[in-house]
C-alpha cells in the first residue's frame, strides 16, 4: 500500500497526539511508580517487597488468580460450547447475561455477596452450621474475582467456534467418535490459542481486582489482604515509598502477562491464516 504524499502532516499530527496521550496517561505514571519506589534506596525497596505481609499478599493474589483462571476456563469452555453448538430457548438472553459481570460495577458485586452470605442473610445460619466461611475469608475473595472475570474466556472462544462451524464435528460424530474425542481432536485444536488468550486476559484482570475484593475481604492483614488491598493499606499508612514498591511488583506481573498475551496473539493470528 502506498501512502499518498499529501496525508503526511495529518499522519504526523495523529501519531504525535497518540504518542503524547500514551505518554501522559501511561508512560509518565509508570515511570513515576518505578522512580518513587526506589526513592529511599534499593534496600528500602527490597525490604518493602520482602516484608512478611507483602509476601503473604503476593501468595494470596497468585492463589486467587490461579483458582479463578481454572474456574473460568472450565466455565468458559462449557458456556461457549453450549452457546455455539446447541440451540435452545433463551439462548440469546444467556449470551447477553454472560457479559453482565464486566458491565456491573465491582462494588455492587462485593455488596451482593455480603448481603447474600453475610451475617444478616438467611443463608448464614446454614453456612455456619456447615462451618463454611465465605465472606471476609478467602472463598469470598475467590467468588468475587471469579464473578468479575467470568466472561473473558467464553468471549474469546465463542467467535472462533461460530466461525468454524459444526461440519467437522458432525462428520466425526457420524463416524462414531465420542463427545470427548470430538472435543479433544477437533474442537480443541481450533480454540487453543484463543483459549490461552482468554486465560491471560482473565488472569490479568483477576490479579488487579480491587473494588469487589475490597468490600468482601475484611482487610485481615496477612490473611485476606490481596496485593492491591495491601498497596492501599501502605498508602494510607503514609508509607508512600512502600506502596509504590509493591505496586511495581504488580506492574512487573502485569508486564509478564502482557508478554504472554502478545505471544498468544501472534499465534492466534497465524492460526487464523
Amino acid at each position: 500500500m502506498r501512502v499518498r504524499k499529501n496525508d503526511g502532516p495529518v499522519k504526523w499530527v495523529l501519531i504525535t497526539i497518540s504518542a503524547l496521550f500514551l505518554f501522559v496517561m501511561l508512560i509518565l505514571p509508570l515511570i513515576y511508580v518505578i522512580v518513587t519506589s526506589f526513592k529511599d534506596g534499593v534496600q528500602y525497596f527490597v525490604n518493602a517487597i520482602t516484608d512478611e505481609y507483602a509476601k503473604k499478599a503476593l501468595i494470596l493474589t497468585v492463589w486467587v488468580t490461579a483458582i479463578t483462571v481454572i474456574c473460568n476456563t472450565v466455565f468458559g469452555i462449557f458456556a461457549a460450547w453450549c452457546l455455539t453448538r446447541y440451540s435452545f430457548k433463551g439462548k440469546k438472553r444467556i449470551s447477553a447475561l454472560i457479559d453482565l459481570p464486566v458491565t456491573v460495577s465491582p462494588i455492587i458485586v462485593g455488596l451482593i455477596y455480603v448481603l447474600t452470605y453475610g451475617r444478616q442473610s438467611a443463608v448464614y445460619p446454614i453456612l455456619k452450621n456447615l462451618d463454611i466461611k465465605i465472606i471476609f475469608a478467602v472463598p469470598g475473595i475467590v467468588l468475587a474475582t471469579v464473578f468479575v472475570t467470568l466472561p473473558f474466556v467464553a468471549r474469546e472462544i465463542i467467535p472462533v467456534l461460530n466461525a468454524k462451524g459444526t461440519e467437522e464435528e458432525e462428520a466425526a460424530a457420524l463416524m462414531g467418535a465420542s463427545g470427548f474425542r470430538i472435543f479433544k481432536d477437533i474442537t480443541f485444536p481450533h480454540i487453543k490459542w484463543s483459549l490461552l488468550y482468554g486465560i491471560v486476559l482473565c488472569a490479568a484482570r483477576a490479579m488487579g481486582e480491587f473494588g469487589a475484593v475490597s468490600v468482601i475481604s475484611g482487610h485481615l492483614r496477612g490473611k485476606t489482604n490481596t496485593l492491591p488491598l495491601y498497596i492501599e493499606l501502605l498508602y494510607q499508612g503514609y508509607d508512600f515509598t512502600g506502596a509504590f514498591a509493591v505496586s511495581s511488583v504488580l506492574v512487573i506481573m502485569a508486564v509478564c502477562i502482557l508478554i504472554l498475551r502478545s505471544i498468544f496473539e501472534k499465534n492466534l493470528i497465524k492460526n487464523k491464516d
Binding site: Q120, H219, L220, L233
Partner: peptide
C-alpha cells in the same frame, strides 16, 4: 494476632455483617 484497619464506622458494619 491478625489486624484489620479501616474507617471506624465501616469496620463496625463489617463486623456486624460477619467479619469475625
Amino acid at each position: 494476632i491478625t489486624q484489620s484497619h479501616g474507617g471506624s464506622s465501616k469496620q463496625a458494619l463489617e463486623v456486624a455483617n460477619g467479619l469475625e
